[in-house]
Amino acid sequence: MSLSAMSTPTPAQVPSHVESGEGPPLVFLHSMAGSSASWSEQFAAMSANHRCIAWDMPGFGESPSAEHTSMTEMSDLVVRMLDFLGIAEPAHLVGLSVGGMIAQECAVRHPERFASLVILDSAAQFGNGSAANSDEWAATMIATINATPVPDFCREMVQSITASGLSAEATARGVAAMSRATKPGLRLATRLIAGHDTVSALPGMLLPTLVIVGEHDPETPVAYAQRLAELIPHATLSVIPDCGHLSSLEAPIAVNQALRAHLKRTAR
């Protein structure tokens, strides 16, 4: 039975989250290199007109670790959070990187719970369907996570996936947001990324969708975003100049403008 059909969950059954504002619900799912704290710029821009909610996925922030949670279970967990918050109307869903992958799964499995979808710096499939070995990548990444102190891992990741020229202040904010992760949470995110594949499902997904990508994203390049936009019916693609993988942090003004335009187009 879907979690969305269960009775109202208790606080212990939902991930930690923050919220601000009133209006149509706008839900944010962070990347592996982030947490609920990653969306401060979007909260500041959007909370005047929307009820903004950002979660900490399992193993991040105050959310308990659940290292072997499947992608299906992650999508059900998002719906469980909506139920706990009393949100019955369809919510706008925004996801970055692995958060964008979870958002895709949510849109495919629970389309009735969402008004629209925004996917930032993500992909429809690990490696965009290339010959890349996802198991090998995951094993290497997990070995690195196990061997590296979390603060060092976070600093090195944020610096490696953002575009050159990012200010020291923005870099520090990104590292601080990601540093709320635990090793089980980082391993979970790694496994979710490696196993992700919505290629066959997305053509039947009819939610209004905006795909955003940084021009210089080294992790999920523009070609990945183009494929997403081609797979999803009537999706809109926005490429953010001079930006890497953490577009909402690196170019918040441009991302917020694109998000506002999308929300205006999809207003009910």
Rank of each mutant, 00 (worst) to 15 (best):
M1Y: 08
L3I: 08
A5K: 13
P11G: 02
A12G: 11
Q13W: 01
Q13K: 07
V14L: 03
P15G: 02
P15C: 06
S16A: 15
H17M: 07
V18R: 15
P24I: 10
P25D: 10
L26K: 11
V27Y: 11
L29E: 02
M32I: 14
M32L: 15
S35A: 11
S35Q: 09
S35H: 07
E41W: 11
F43C: 11
A44R: 13
M46A: 10
S47D: 05
N49C: 07
H50M: 04
R51I: 00
R51G: 00
C52E: 05
W55P: 03
D56K: 09
P58F: 01
F60P: 09
G61L: 10
E62H: 13
S63Y: 02
S63I: 04
E67K: 01
E73H: 13
S75Y: 05
V78K: 10
M81I: 13
F84G: 00
F84N: 04
L85N: 07
I87T: 09
E89H: 02
E89R: 13
P90G: 06
H92N: 11
L93P: 08
S97W: 05
G99D: 06
G99Y: 05
A103R: 13
A107P: 09
R109N: 06
H110S: 03
V118Y: 00
D121Q: 08
S122W: 09
Q125E: 15
F126R: 10
F126E: 04
N128H: 12
N128I: 12
A131S: 15
A132G: 00
S134E: 09
I142G: 01
A143P: 04
T144Y: 05
A147H: 06
A147E: 14
T148S: 10
P151V: 11
D152P: 00
F153H: 11
R155H: 09
M157Q: 11
I161S: 07
T162A: 07
A163H: 14
S164V: 13
L166N: 02
A168T: 12
A170N: 13
T171V: 15
R173M: 04
A176H: 06
M178H: 08
R191H: 06
L192G: 00
G195A: 12
H196C: 06
H196I: 07
S200F: 07
P203F: 05
L206N: 12
T209K: 04
V211P: 02
I212Q: 02
V213C: 14
G214H: 12
E215V: 03
E215D: 08
H216D: 10
H216A: 12
P218T: 06
E219S: 14
P221G: 03
Y224C: 15
Y224T: 14
Y224S: 15
A225S: 14
A225Y: 10
A225P: 08
L228Q: 08
L228G: 03
E230G: 09
I232K: 10
I232M: 06
P233M: 08
P233S: 06
H234K: 14
T236L: 08
T236Q: 14
L237V: 10
I240G: 03
C243M: 09
H245R: 12
S247H: 06
S248V: 11
P252Q: 10
P252Y: 05
I253K: 12
I253R: 13
A254Y: 01
N256Q: 08
A258C: 07
A258M: 04
R260D: 11
L263R: 08
L263F: 03
R265G: 12
R268A: 14
